[in-house]
Design a protein around this nucleic acid. Structure first.
Lengths: 187, 187, 187, 187
DNA sequence: CATGAATGAGACTTCATTCAT
DNA sequence: TATGAATGAAGTCTCATTCAT
């Protein structure tokens, strides 16, 4: 088992799934891109589905590491901003992965890992909002809905960054936080 | 050419694409669901791809009809709210369609119609924000990013409604408008 | 049963079989060309195969009428020439039919009628040659082979005439007879 | 890519196309005859049409090699005879191929390769006749027509040989040359 | 007599996976 | 450990034919 070969296959698969999607990516494409023989693929991954899930698992792990639970004794807004900044940084470092994850693919079975992760994130956001309301920082609102809105905004904005060059994650994160915190109205 | 049969096929396809996604839906499933023979499908649609695009075209048409350009001489926030309300109503009336559209599918070729539509909507939102800044209603911001955020929030929130019962579109639209306008911070 | 409709179908089928061949001609093409409904086709012909055979039967009948057995008491060469001339005339009058017949189609089952007819013609030619040798008019030769040669020459030459305009059957028939009788060598 | 498997497929296809024609031969028949799996066929040939064209290309190549341009400084009749003999030999060695080629198939698209080849041969024959007339060897005639006649005779005679056993190509070639040169009349 | 919507057997082709080397 | 030829289930699509109106 060569770690190199495995890595080559993963990279190839990431790139192709990102560009063409799961169903349009064929094993042939992956092995061509990786420069290995057909049989070799199956030495490392049981199936096409497995390599896909493996990739999703990797992203989720990376994402989890970048998102820190907000510590209310420190400046919470700053911490939220930093979380967002780190997620944006990951997306920009691994554009292929980002594209895969942010595609809600047709097959919920394939995406269960990602869906569960986003579910978690949503609950995290909702929890923070609820806490914020309790503490009088956040205005009372339907946190279920707002949490979804926040996550959706984030996703869509990040998708928009993937095709741009020279993006500054800090700035974007600032803009996002401002939008989420204050909305668009002038005061 | 029976309009009925065509309709049965479209309904069946909508339902199945929505539940299982494009690639997991087979012609066999569609014709079984519609209760017609295999050949009948091809009397009405040239291919699986064509019926899919046809469905997308329909939604886009419906959506376009529900979104009215905001008239600045009247209460603009109210009009935005009403637009959102109408879109939510459509999503709830046609849950299958909504699920299809709100899936960022892997195959950009298949989704070009939807992607172009969302592109338009994004520009509409951006235009409104730019106008709002000019008029001093909206705080200065990166409207490119914020427009994306707004659209993303909307999409994600609507997805969340599809599995709920007894949703009140007016209320949700209010909540969305409040979130978008004022953000989450208490004042 | 309208003779007109039947005729329209036959004409359409002739034209299309001639242009595209049996397998590339679809019932749809025939009924479109004839301007009748699908069901109407089956009122007049049991199947695609039947209308094809019907057409072949017609040609064979026509051909048979144009070929007269040579009467040895009169000028036999002149009679041969006249036979050939009449066949050429038929081919030019009914170019579609000619094209169909002169296509050795892939499916021997479909062409059995034509094949049997050509078999007959070949025997007729062979018989004439044998008689000719007996009478000392024809040089001794393998009449089996020469009969085939004569028929092949005829077929190929006629095929060549179908795309020409302003052909004079008499002249061509003369040329064919000269070739068959005297060959190409100068003397 | 195993040359053996490819060869097995080609042989099987030749046999079946020859026996049943293009449209009546199915991929299933070919793979059954070749004893390979369905997918294997498509490893070697893109489609049914491709394997057919490949076969035609092969024959044309073989035929081209057997037909030598006549050198007028040597005995030209002998050379013509030898050309014919070699073509007959090829037909007898590869009866399947011969049957395919000598079928004027319905679909001109499929047969373009063969048709172009025969066009060439016709021009070759016509050229030789024209030259012969110039040199005073051949009687003046419409060489367009006579060239067609010669080719047609050849084709038909060869078709006739395919079902015979113990054919002597030299003898047949002699008979053909005599027929073409001197015709059938006694002198 | 005529229509044309509907049928479904059966053709072609794809592609994830296996397995002998 | 790597190879790549072979596999075959399963999918899409075609088109001659039927049948209710």
């Amino acid at each position: 088992m060569s770690v190199q070969t495995r890595g080559r296959l993963l990279e190839a698969a990431k790139k192709l799934f990102s560009e063409k999607g799961y169903y349009n990516t064929q094993i042939s494409h992956i092995i061509d891109e990786a420069g290995v023989a057909r049989g070799t693929f199956y030495l490392y991954f049981k199936s096409k589905e497995e390599i896909f899930r493996e990739i999703l698992r990797e992203v989720v792990k990376e994402l989890r590491e970048r998102i820190k639970v907000v510590d209310l004794s420190e400046d919470p807004i700053e911490q939220v901003k930093e979380n967002i900044e780190r997620v944006i940084e990951l997306a920009l470092e691994e554009k292929d992965l980002a594209r895969i994850v942010l595609q809600r693919n047709c097959d919920p079975k394939l995406f269960s890992i990602i869906n569960e992760f986003f579910e978690e994130v949503r609950k995290l956001i909702k929890g923070s909002l609820d806490k914020g309301i309790e503490l009088g920082l956040v205005r009372p609102c339907d946190t279920e809905i707002v949490a979804r809105g926040v996550m959706g905004a984030l996703k869509e904005i990040i998708v928009g960054l993937l095709d741009k060059e020279g993006v500054d994650p800090g700035e974007i994160a600032d803009e996002i936080v401002r939008f989420g915190m204050r909305g668009v109205l002038r005061r």
